[in-house]
Design a protein around this nucleic acid. Structure first.
Lengths: 437, 437
DNA sequence: ACAGTTTCCCGTAAATGC
DNA sequence: TGCATTTACGGGAAACTG
């Protein structure tokens, strides 16, 4: 009869960081007869501890009681919004912490309870409801892990409050998971993933498959186990890319200039028949939050060569926006006029046509100073270069799993999923009370 | 009989930030007869408000009482160290705040009081002491202003507790002030200022003077009024340079490679007869926390030309260490092989000899990637360049005040002040209880 | 409207706990 | 001892407040 709206971390609901304010809202969905008494609602954290007791215990530091009021907007029902709520951990509750030692903090689920009581015509009526499971973190570095939990829970169950969910988390099919992954991108950085990008992610997570859609992905493989040979899990890697886009690549990403998720085999297959100087942008698979470009060129005797620049990460992107890196990148071999090897964005868009709207218009203030830019330069020693090219296949091979099929036309640019699909997912995760029964 | 040791902000004593822990220590300087009772000390903030009442009021949030104990180290007298003290502002104490509206928060002085009471042979003895004046800030952005106050107070008075000091702050002579300024550098970034650098600072603050040492500097001119034509005060400018050195230039500064404080006239006078490609490093006077280099070259018909690069600030220095900027800086004019114009550090030290020990040894990991560096480049269009050179004098002139005297030999490298002078100043500000009477 | 000041909170580093 | 987690707080930005 009453339903809570979720506390929200900016953009990431259902995650609460200790010591940081959050907001929550409850609405009464039944119409009460005209009353002139106050209907007080009390908010409690982890009101009745579930049987599988939680490890950590928290309490609401701030005022947790407030009277309902007629909602300004909409149809005039009763609601109350708690603001400036803050969570703090209880220390040394009863000697030691719980024992479910297998779960990490971001898998530990909690909930907010809301209670009210009113009397009408001699009848005492108790109202109570609670939130969807919450994850409590103490530092933003735990946010990616916490968000993985929230996604997995809401993707795979409709239960209102199964706090033991991660004791034995169900698997997701790739078709479910890929939809959520694309939604992460459309929701947080404005453009979702197309089929080719999702295929690369599927291969990365599951290896070669005849058909992906029904293959199952375990929770562990998604966000807990490290990718073989890497010191991070699949989700941590993907999340680092979301973060990179949000902070440094937003307009370029939304302009569809970043292919991003391409295997190295696919990359070569795509570039090999292209005009020399054709390049594409790809996220680093070996480092968190990095982006690189690969271009194709022809050697003296006509053989195809591929070059990839060392991935750029946030440190360098802070000093120099990515579009300007592409604009100014130069390769220098000793004593030669440096040249920008990047000519056409795959498949054949002249570089400036693709990127010029993102260039930083030169800040030519009438200084007594000579303006100066940082220019990303690769210095290539010709002898070394020849060596490198022959070894290239081997060095790269160690980084890649299996060969991927020939590209054919599968990488043609495609729009992200339809808005309708996103709305559906959005509601699944972000309980919009306005549209509830 | 008892004396407090100061609460310390890392490296900056006598400044307390609300909500951040600080530590303070009190020692009893008289030897008590053997006692077996505990001597408790209580710490109070702004215990008795001074007549000229303060605007803001604070209190100690944490436990403020602790028993004295025999000091481990040294001569075994009683002492107590309060740790994890934290200050919080009292809100709405009695309606409104005080009225001394002329002072800003960093000029508002406070103090910590320490009290203890003991009974010996039927005599009750009250002990009480207090700290030197303290500045309370709420954000680190107020630290430079607060530190200016602490310096000024301790430079110009020996009073233990004159909380109204900034109602009418005395002036400092340049000889006093310059010594403190040099000490800032030797203390916080490891190398003090030599006579030439101090002379430039004196001229900047006071204009041309026959003899600086007795000229007086007002508190306002030092840290409150903006430098004419600039949006910051003298001290804020100098402090931004200290910060820049601490974060990005430490080894280069300590290696004496940075002349830093040179007027533009002096710079030209020094460089004009030097080998083309001779350069020096100078802090920006127009922007906070910037460093630039100026080099001399000769035009086609033998005339002397000076070029200064746009100052580097922390953003770029984070992506590329300054020594590498100098190492790799290039000037490019269209279609020509780019060249590094920096050859000799003034007066005549080959660049690599001066800087090579600070170069980042190339991080050549066996990547499948082509390594890439950011290279600072200035692109000079030849036609523009010719125009620029003729206008240069005027453009620059607008930025400089009066002509400075011919350099003669006054810029010869000199060691910073003697350690003894620093020790004296250090004690003046940082009350070292060990050496007190 | 605005400037001085405080609050908020991310993100890195250090401390703590298990 | 090492890893997981929390605490600490600088720093940028938003919010507050006379």
């Amino acid at each position: 009869e009453k339903q809570p709206c979720m506390p929200t971390h900016p953009q990431k609901p259902l995650i609460i960081k200790t010591g940081v304010q959050f907001t929550t809202k409850v609405r009464l969905l039944v119409k009460l007869p005209e009353v002139d008494y106050q209907l007080k609602v009390k908010t409690t954290f982890d009101k009745d501890l579930p049987p599988g007791r939680v490890n950590r215990q928290f309490f609401i530091l701030t005022n947790n009681t407030k009277a309902m009021d007629i909602e300004d907007s909409s149809n005039g029902c009763l609601s109350v919004e708690f603001r400036h709520l803050q969570l703090k951990e209880k220390k040394y509750i009863n000697g030691t912490k719980g024992n479910e030692g297998l779960l990490c903090v971001t898998e530990e689920l909690h909930s907010l309870s809301f209670e009210a009581c009113f009397v009408v015509q001699g009848l005492t009526i108790d109202l109570e409801t609670c939130s969807l499971p919450l994850v409590v973190i103490s530092n933003v570095c735990q946010l990616p892990g916490g968000w993985a939990s929230v996604m997995w829970y809401n993707l795979l169950t409709d239960e209102q409050r199964n706090l033991a969910f991660f004791a034995n988390p169900p698997r997701a099919t790739w078709s479910q998971l890929s939809e959520v992954l694309s939604w992460q991108f459309s929701n947080f950085v404005g453009r979702g993933l197309n089929r080719e990008q999702l295929t690369m992610l599927g291969e990365k997570l599951l290896g070669q498959q005849a058909s992906f859609s029904d293959v199952q992905v375990s929770w562990s493989k998604f966000s807990k186990e490290n990718i073989p040979g890497k010191p991070f899990s699949f989700w941590m890697w993907l999340e680092s890319i979301l973060e990179l886009i949000k902070k440094h690549l937003l307009p370029v990403w939304n302009d569809n200039c970043i292919m991003g998720f391409v295997s190295k085999e696919m990359e070569r297959a795509l570039l090999k028949d292209r005009e020399p100087g054709t390049f594409l942008l790809r996220f680093s698979e070996s480092h968190l939050g990095g982006i690189t470009f690969t271009w194709v060129e022809r050697g003296d005797n006509g053989e195809v060569k591929f070059n990839s620049v060392e991935p750029y990460t946030k440190n360098r992107l802070t000093a120099l926006p990515f579009a300007d890196i592409i604009r100014n990148y130069k390769v220098i071999s000793d004593g030669v006029v440096p040249e920008n090897p990047l000519k056409f964005l795959y498949p054949d868009i002249p570089k400036d046509e693709a990127f010029s709207r993102h260039y930083n218009s030169a800040p030519n203030k009438a200084h007594p100073y000579i303006a100066s830019t940082l220019i990303p330069i690769s210095e290539i020693d010709q002898t070394l270069k020849r060596l490198k090219t022959t070894e290239e296949r081997d060095v790269d091979g160690s980084d890649c799993s299996n060969a991927s099929p020939t590209p054919s036309s599968c990488l043609s640019p495609e729009p992200p999923m339809t808005p309708g699909e996103f709305d559906m997912l959005h509601q699944q995760i972000c309980f919009d009370m306005m549209s509830s029964p």
